[in-house]
Design a protein around this nucleic acid. Structure first.
Length: 474
RNA sequence: GUCCCCAUCGUCUAGCGGCCUAGGACGCUGGCCUCUCACGCCGGUAACACGGGUUCGAUUCCCGUUGGGGACGCCA
């Protein structure tokens, strides 16, 4: 028998970070078991499901590198199967038609709330003997929940969970418009797809004692369940689409690497000793759903950023270059020189927590003019007595016949010696001329990548500007 | 309100009765390195919610309290 998990989102919006974590756990556990994981689009709600949302879910999973086995299953296509199961239950006397109107149900619920009871259907239509006058009314099909006893299962994450059957009401299997409902569809599809492990959010716990009796009534084996603790926002409440949750694709836009997002997500509720950094292969071999903790986790942006920085540092440079090109475009560098991009990546690999940050920090390499200069930095670092040294450096660099580190070093040394300066004094004016700012990779690295012509040009322009602004001030 | 679940530093977590004067990571912070910024390295800050049991011994087991979360749809 093959172990099989499934990820079953409803296509009513983008794939958010909580859904991504569920998908990741489904993927990891299936891989861990050497089984499969399937994607099922739960589009039985025709009103709210959209093709755009389906595409967004595919795109999100794809970006994360989470590729389901087999073709995605669209639940709406299995309606005939769902309905057949409902009619089978009807024939077996395990389901019944209910003619209650929405108004009737509503008043029933409000009465129950007033009496401080849990709102639930009281099963009046199951006991109905007289159908005169209502037989032509629209009806729904309800499941006859076992009236007593309890429904218990051994949750792979939460341990033993038990519900008294009296807590459960007779759930609707088929709506009055003839369409199957969620709980019916899930049970039929999970059975038909051969799902052995249902991994889903803790918010589904209360659906499980409704689904288990359905499997049993249909004579099917019940899958194993694992209910994952929810992901909470900074305020401690469930992360949802209308509560701060954004599409996973937003993380791409914000310069995160998918492996960092996966790595961050797997550590929410799961750990392996003191290890923080995991490759996908490590996660797949080490992850066990039974090791997942039971308490909800709060999303922590700064840890994600730290992990992202780590993954940027350990990522291949050619791959980073491809991503960087995208982010340069987003900040207006339309067609960056690819050779330059490749040369620039190593300078920022250790200096950027996100690819957005890398693009912004590297921007000065790709523009013709680094102005406007950081005026506060000029005021602080570009003292008048340094300007002759800067002029000297320019002539030294202009005479170099080879643009190599050792030559650059010598040129700087000669300049510093001639003016009795430390590199710390000269570096900042040079840096500002070269980049416009007082923060950048090492001077030599910058100059080397920039090349002789551009470097000299920027230094000359900078020197002229510094002289002018200093005279202007005094 | 009813039912279900949860509870170790601010956050993510280790701990599965003695190894705990509770470990790691992020963050914050002091220092080193240094041409700036990062990276890296060394150090610091900070937690077992509370009350009862069980036990020779509880962070670990049981019960209760408090707190938090989730579910109560002809949504999924």
């Amino acid at each position: 028998m093959t172990f099989r998990t499934r990820f079953a989102p409803s296509p009513t919006g983008f794939l958010h970070i909580g859904g991504a974590r569920t998908a990741l756990f489904c993927h990891l556990y299936a891989r861990h078991l050497g089984g499969e994981w399937l994607l099922r689009i739960e589009d039985t709600d025709q009103e709210r499901s959209t093709p755009e949302a389906v595409a967004a879910i595919f795109a999100g999973l794809n970006w994360l590198g989470l590729h389901p086995d087999g073709e995605p299953v669209f639940q709406s296509k299995n309606q005939a199967r769902h309905l057949a199961a409902a009619h089978q239950l009807l024939a077996m006397g395990k389901a019944y038609r209910c003619y209650c109107t929405r108004e009737e149900l509503e008043s029933m619920r409000s009465e129950q709330r007033e009496k401080k009871e849990k709102p639930r259907y009281d099963g009046r239509c199951a006991r109905r003997v007289d159908f005169s006058g209502i037989a032509d009314r629209p009806y729904v099909i309800r499941f006859k929940t076992p009236p007593e006893g309890k429904t218990t299962w051994e949750d792979l994450i939460q341990g033993s969970i038990s519900f008294a059957n009296t807590e459960l009401d007779d759930l609707i299997l088929v709506r009055s418009d003839g369409l199957p409902t969620y709980n019916l569809a899930v049970v039929v599809d999970d059975h038909d797809m051969g799902i052995t492990h249902v991994i889903r959010g803790e918010d589904h716990i209360s659906n499980t004692p409704r689904q288990i009796p359905l499997f049993q009534a249909l004579g099917w084996s019940v899958p194993l369940y694992a209910h994952m603790p929810l992901l909470h926002g900074a305020d401690g409440a469930k992360l949802s689409k209308r509560h701060g949750a954004v599409s996973v694709l937003n993380y791409r836009e914000n310069g995160f690497l998918p492996e960092a997002v996966n790595n961050y997500l797997v550590r929410l509720g799961w750990s392996h000793g003191e290890q923080e950094i995991f490759t996908m292969a490590e996660m797949e071999s080490l992850f066990d759903i039974r090791d997942v903790g039971r308490s909800a986790a709060i999303f922590n942006q700064s840890k994600l950023e730290w992990l992202n920085g780590h993954h940027i540092r350990s990522s291949r440079q050619d791959r980073l270059a491809v991503v960087l090109v995208d982010h340069l475009r987003l900040i207006g560098i339309e067609n960056p020189d690819l050779t330059l991009v490749a040369a620039v990546v190593p300078l920022f690999q250790e200096r950027a927590k996100t690819m957005v940050e890398m693009a912004e920090k590297a921007r000065f390499f790709f523009v013709e003019d680094v102005r406007p200069y950081d005026m506060k930095a000029i005021e602080k670092y570009c003292k008048p007595d340094l300007l002759p040294a800067l002029a000297h450096l320019i002539t030294e660099l202009a005479t170099l016949t080879e643009w190599q580190d050792s030559f650059l070093q010598a040129a700087f040394d000669r300049t510093l010696q001639a003016h009795d300066l430390k590199m710390g004094q000269l570096a900042q004016p040079v840096r500002i001329a070269l980049t416009g700012t007082p923060v950048s990779p090492g001077i030599h690295e910058v100059v080397l990548v920039l090349g002789q012509q551009k470097s000299l040009h920027r230094l000359q322009a900078g020197l002229a500007f510094f002289q002018e602004s200093i005279h202007g001030v005094s």
